[in-house]
Design a protein around this nucleic acid. Sequence first.
DNA 1: CCTAGCTGTTCATTATTAATGAACTTAATT
DNA 2: AATTAAGTTCATTAATAATGAACAGCTAGG
Lengths: 266, 266
Amino acid sequence: MVYSVYNNEWLVCKVQENTPKVKSLYKALCLLDYFNSDHPERGIKELSDLSGMLKSSVYNILSTFQMCGFIEKDSSSGKYKLGKKILTLSNVLYSTDSAKAIIKPYMDKVAEECSETVFLAFPSGTDIIYVEGSYPPGVLYARSIVGVKAEMYCTGIGKAILAYSDEALIQMVVDKGLEPFTSFTLSDEKALREDLEKTRQRGYSIDNMEHEYGIRCVGVPLHNNSGHLMGALSISGPSLRVMDDKVVFFAEKLQEAANEIKGLLK
Amino acid sequence: MVYSVYNNEWLVCKVQENTPKVKSLYKALCLLDYFNSDHPERGIKELSDLSGMLKSSVYNILSTFQMCGFIEKDSSSGKYKLGKKILTLSNVLYSTDSAKAIIKPYMDKVAEECSETVFLAFPSGTDIIYVEGSYPPGVLYARSIVGVKAEMYCTGIGKAILAYSDEALIQMVVDKGLEPFTSFTLSDEKALREDLEKTRQRGYSIDNMEHEYGIRCVGVPLHNNSGHLMGALSISGPSLRVMDDKVVFFAEKLQEAANEIKGLLK
DNA sequence: CCTAGCTGTTCATTATTAATGAACTTAATT
DNA sequence: AATTAAGTTCATTAATAATGAACAGCTAGG
């Protein structure tokens, strides 16, 4: 059998039409994706099985990652896990993100005025990634949201982005499948498209427990001063607290913030 | 001229005796190190000059990183910067670090009892990397410390680690050079070694403005229940507030915490 | 408006290296 | 001690990363 990298499972699902310029790097980076909150530690064999790559290849790649601090070997379990270099890079990214720095004070203000949690997220392919959270005064236990990936079609923040995105992206999201998270999730194309239309008319999105049961969110898009869509803000809280009148109030506050931010983002 | 990867500058300084198993991956990962707080954005030519790699190679590598979300192209500057995939991986690491989760409550307790900031750091080569911070009640503006890298020889937390490390590591740190950060930095080997000896006798380290002028720290090592050195805790504050009697009190509180943690870390 | 100069991007060829799979080592389990 | 599974090493070969020249796109200056 003639070996071809494109026979391998790891590539088939990832590459659409663009082949990576440096295939060995691409393969290596794909391995890191197998480390997630559900599986923070993995073994060579496990990764080999998951990725379809040979044990020895996985070993060589992990060794190199380890040498660079991207992967560490857990001393007690003997398994591999993500390394502290990731934290260092993350700190660089987080502490130098100028957009986030501009936006944060406005988020804080809204969080205080509304006494609910405000999130900032940016699109990343067909998903969104949370980049910052502002918590209302008095919130003690706030789990870390920075870096968390979520669906675009069933979060307030995601739908605010999607509603103002190109048709191409909407179609990609739909094609990827609208997996229901709760019984409220808009899991068919028509319902989602109608909701996006309503979002555009209102100027803000509503996520009524579509992602998480009992949580209601309001989202608004963030544009820069040349009108380009950058990301979105949302405000979330328990559905029992976020009643219809609150939704309107929250949306106003978010839109005020978004308008002010618009003038500051290049 | 016969091309050899080892002629290139990027490798010479990095690899001691171990050559990376996957050279192309190693080279690519080295490029990411050029993105730091002082230079969050860089161009192809710039990276090519810095690394000694060809423009086209840098381009191919960055394209691949970009495809995987590790690098993004800034829309306004046109330059490359770290991508949001880093945040996602960082969140996985941060939210699944069991050692940190165990230690955090003890840090919070000490921070409250002492009304000063408590840090947790782990060794990473000849440096330390901060992994968590606990701030006393009332501190509003706390810069993000997670992932920050610092010197081992001139921080309280670093010297607590170094004092209980193998001679091999101490020698490596010394050989790397004891660059002075302030006029208080112990920048010659003898002074540092004496200080480490004192640290071992006391059971805690003192950083008297050696890293940052006006800041004094106390550090204690963290061992697991089999006696293996894991990392260190420190408590820091303005020198005017952290007087000699406070130093002793802080050290006691940190040691109490370290003792309790010891029983919990595998 | 045009040109010079810089940076980013593309491409074909060749020399390097990543993939391969068998064998060996180590650790855990029966 | 035997057995299994995982991790690690290695030589060979097939695949690919490095190379450098050329092209494209942008900006500044005449």
